[in-house]
Deep mutational scan, measured.
Amino acid sequence: MQIFVKTLTGKTITLEVEPSDTIENVKAKIQDKEGIPPDQQRLIFAGKQLEDGRTLSDYNIQKESTLHLVLR
């Protein structure tokens, strides 16, 4: 499924993921596309910060959901 990741600069990254993918996994995909190390990434969905060990389905993230990427 496709999800979108919006950065603070207003750029939107499109990722191909599975509901069973972990947040860690998603961060690795963002690193592949954008070169941002996962340890600098914070992903936010519905106002919650997403934890590395959880999966997209844990957070009920469905196709075409938009996550927000904050760098630390």
Rank of each mutant, 00 (worst) to 15 (best):
R72Q: 14
P38F: 15
A46R: 03
T66Q: 14
T12Y: 09
Y59R: 01
F4D: 01
I3Q: 00
P38M: 11
L50W: 01
E64M: 11
L67A: 03
D58L: 08
I13W: 12
I44F: 13
P19W: 05
L67P: 01
I36D: 10
G53C: 02
L71H: 08
I44A: 11
G35P: 03
T66C: 02
I36K: 05
R42F: 15
R72Y: 13
S20D: 12
K11P: 11
H68W: 03
D32T: 10
L56K: 00
V17M: 09
V17T: 08
L50R: 00
K48C: 02
T12H: 05
Y59E: 07
Q41M: 14
K6I: 07
E18P: 04
T9E: 12
V70L: 10
T55E: 06
V5Y: 03
R42S: 15
K11H: 13
Q2D: 12
F45A: 03
Q62G: 04
V26C: 02
R54G: 13
T7L: 11
F4Y: 04
K33R: 06
T14Q: 04
L8I: 06
A46M: 13
K11Q: 13
L71M: 06
T22Y: 07
K29P: 00
Q41F: 04
D52I: 05
Q62R: 05
I36S: 13
S65F: 05
K27H: 06
L50A: 03
D32V: 12
Q40A: 08
R42M: 13
I23M: 06
L67Q: 01
I23P: 09
V5D: 00
V26T: 05
P38K: 10
R72M: 11
E34G: 02
T7C: 02
E34D: 08
T7E: 09
Q40P: 03
P19C: 02
T9H: 08
E64R: 03
V5L: 02
L15R: 00
V5R: 00
A28S: 08
L15P: 00
Q2G: 05
N25T: 07
Q31E: 06
Q31M: 08
T66A: 13
Q2E: 11
D32G: 11
G10F: 02
E16D: 06
Q62D: 08
L8P: 11
D39Q: 07
T22P: 10
